[in-house]
Simulated assay, not measured.
Amino acid sequence: MNLLALIQAAGPLLWVLLALSVYVVYTAAVRTQILARLGRDPSALIERARAVTAESGPAAALAEVDRAADPTPAAAVLRAGLSRAERGVDAAQAAMNAAVLVEDTRLYAGLSALGTAAQIAPLLGLLGTVIGMVRSFLVFSSITSPTPAQLATGISEALINTAAGLIVAILAYVARNALRAKADRIATQAERVREELPAWLIPRGLTPVSARAVPEVALNFDNVPAGGAAR
């Protein structure tokens, strides 16, 4: 039996599984390309920005990062922090926190869809199995002595849909886990920038507001008469 004959024997539900498999493969391929572009090593850019910050300040480091045109999330977080560095470490930290949230959305886009496909594909296969078995039992109810060929239609539909559902689920599950592991590694680089950049700024006097010294007020009671204030 060739592939076309199997598809015809599996019934209409197999077309749904085939469409789902195309979606899984397309999504996995697109996300692989995007993560490959975002996954470039930003270590050289980070070290260069650190050196420029120490020598010339955050503005010069920001210009260096802009010239690099690095698309990685680490570069985006670095750019956000340096752009607010002149306002203090607290402002830079807030800008980097917002940038990390935006980059996480870019990194993990599409992974929930692959997870959903991995969950519903076996259910679709199970539905096809049930429909195929129902067809087989309908043959028994309508024909006193069904032939093997008559029973084989429902049984083949059940088994083909089961196998197709499992194949799609395995593809989606493996693709999701592989892409998530890649996204986690890229996100770690962005977290590294968020943790390290405040330490670059503090030596330049851009201390957080909470850490700035509060001026002390000296109280002198030496000239106050013992009996209280003069009337």
Rank of each mutant, 00 (worst) to 15 (best):
residue 1 M to F: 15
residue 2 N to G: 15
residue 3 L to E: 14
residue 6 L to K: 15
residue 7 I to C: 07
residue 18 L to M: 15
residue 18 L to N: 08
residue 19 A to L: 15
residue 19 A to G: 15
residue 25 V to D: 06
residue 30 V to I: 09
residue 30 V to F: 02
residue 32 T to N: 12
residue 33 Q to D: 03
residue 37 R to E: 13
residue 41 D to E: 03
residue 42 P to M: 07
residue 42 P to L: 12
residue 49 A to V: 04
residue 50 R to L: 02
residue 53 T to Y: 12
residue 57 G to S: 08
residue 58 P to Y: 07
residue 60 A to P: 04
residue 65 V to F: 09
residue 66 D to T: 10
residue 69 A to Y: 06
residue 70 D to G: 14
residue 74 A to Y: 06
residue 76 A to D: 08
residue 76 A to M: 09
residue 77 V to Q: 02
residue 84 R to G: 14
residue 89 V to W: 01
residue 89 V to G: 08
residue 90 D to H: 01
residue 96 M to H: 04
residue 102 V to P: 00
residue 105 T to Q: 12
residue 106 R to F: 05
residue 109 A to S: 13
residue 113 A to D: 03
residue 114 L to P: 12
residue 116 T to Q: 04
residue 116 T to R: 09
residue 117 A to H: 05
residue 118 A to P: 09
residue 121 A to K: 05
residue 122 P to G: 07
residue 123 L to I: 08
residue 128 G to Q: 10
residue 130 V to M: 07
residue 133 M to A: 00
residue 133 M to Q: 01
residue 135 R to P: 00
residue 146 P to Q: 07
residue 147 T to Y: 02
residue 150 Q to L: 10
residue 150 Q to S: 08
residue 151 L to F: 02
residue 151 L to Y: 11
residue 154 G to M: 04
residue 155 I to Q: 05
residue 155 I to P: 05
residue 157 E to H: 01
residue 157 E to R: 05
residue 159 L to A: 03
residue 160 I to C: 01
residue 161 N to P: 04
residue 163 A to L: 15
residue 164 A to C: 13
residue 165 G to S: 10
residue 165 G to F: 14
residue 170 I to W: 10
residue 175 A to S: 14
residue 176 R to F: 00
residue 178 A to K: 13
residue 187 A to N: 09
residue 189 Q to A: 15
residue 190 A to M: 10
residue 190 A to R: 12
residue 193 V to T: 13
residue 194 R to T: 08
residue 197 L to M: 11
residue 201 L to R: 03
residue 203 P to M: 12
residue 207 T to F: 05
residue 208 P to A: 09
residue 214 V to P: 04
residue 218 A to P: 03
residue 223 N to Q: 14
residue 224 V to M: 04
